[in-house]
């Protein structure tokens, strides 16, 4: 069971929040540990019973899966649960300078509960929540497992540097990023909150299958105005080992998979920015 996270001082501590239908928790734990974090897998019931638990951690991960079966819509029920029972704590978490990442289902949850993308001027509140972004059914109307190229379009996120190219897989049915209108998408872009876009192997914006969902603006991942909350549909935790690459038998085994960078940047950020600043 849970080792008290506070007992390990030299490593940033990550909490992976799991619930019914979470299913990428173990490989996400592996990726974070490989990147140098100490990781606990914690069931949401435990957090709701003891909300102060979050205080022990510096990184919170909402991993992939089908929380509550994705019944109603992907991520919707967990988003609803977090909005009504853990919102203040999550906002406090980010205000404390800590990091949140939602991957695939976790991204859907963050968007649907309103924590992402939180365009600059809209202050989040429970009553005033007007959803302006969503993740809808893919244009293909089906689940697809496929490797994609991502390019980082912004320096705002602490999880990645601009122009980095990542090759990692997507696996979802509801990954089509949508803004209420073009204007909202432009605002998001202007505030540098569009972190990842789907590109082709040369790094250029391209349609299906490069962008497997048909997202508006080819958006694959976004951050909040602080850059400390990241949400993305593709799975960086599925490419941290060289043998996970679909063509390693052609191209040779590299030292590690490209997705590790996301987790390493998170760990480094806590060590170098958050902890050093405090000292």
């Amino acid at each position: 069971m849970t080792i008290k996270a506070e007992t390990l001082n030299n490593k940033p501590k990550a909490i992976i929040l799991r619930t019914a239908g979470t299913n990428c928790d173990n490989e996400t734990k592996y990726a974070l540990e490989k990147a140098g974090a100490f990781v606990d897998l914690i069931h949401i019931n435990q957090v709701l019973n003891e909300k102060s638990l979050l205080g022990l951690y510096q990184i919170l991960v909402l991993p992939g899966g089908f929380t509550y079966g994705d019944d109603i819509a992907a991520g919707k029920v967990l988003a609803n649960q977090l909005r009504h029972h853990l919102l203040d704590e999550l906002i406090q978490f980010v205000d404390d300078g800590k990091l949140i990442i939602g991957i695939c289902n976790g991204f859907q949850v963050l968007v649907k509960m309103g924590l992402l993308p939180r365009i600059n001027d809209i202050q989040y509140s429970l009553n005033g929540h007007k959803q302006e972004f969503t993740l809808a059914y893919n244009d293909s109307n089906k689940f697809e497992d496929r490797w994609v190229y991502l390019r980082a379009f912004s320096n705002k996120s602490v999880f990645i540097d601009k122009d980095t190219i990542l090759y990692i897989p997507v696996a979802n049915a509801e990954g089509k990023f949508m803004a209420k209108n073009e204007e909202k998408l432009r605002m998001l872009s202007e505030s540098e909150q569009i972190v990842f876009k789907y590109v082709d192997e040369e790094g250029n914006i391209s349609g299906y299958p490069w962008d497997p969902s048909g997202s508006m603006g080819n958006v694959a991942g976004v951050c909040d105005p602080t850059g400390r909350i990241l949400g993305m549909m593709p799975h960086p935790e599925r490419h941290v080992e060289p043998t996970q690459h679909p063509r390693w038998t052609r191209e040779g085994l590299k030292a590690e998979g490209e997705g590790i960078i996301i987790f390493r940047k998170a760990v480094d950020y806590i060590k170098e920015k958050m902890w050093k600043k405090k000292l």
Binding site: C24, E27, A31, F143, D145, P169, A171, Q244
Partner: peptide, 8 residues
């Protein structure tokens, strides 16, 4: 249509 990579 099958997730053939989950669990990593």
């Amino acid at each position: 249509q099958y997730d053939h990579e989950v669990q990593g």
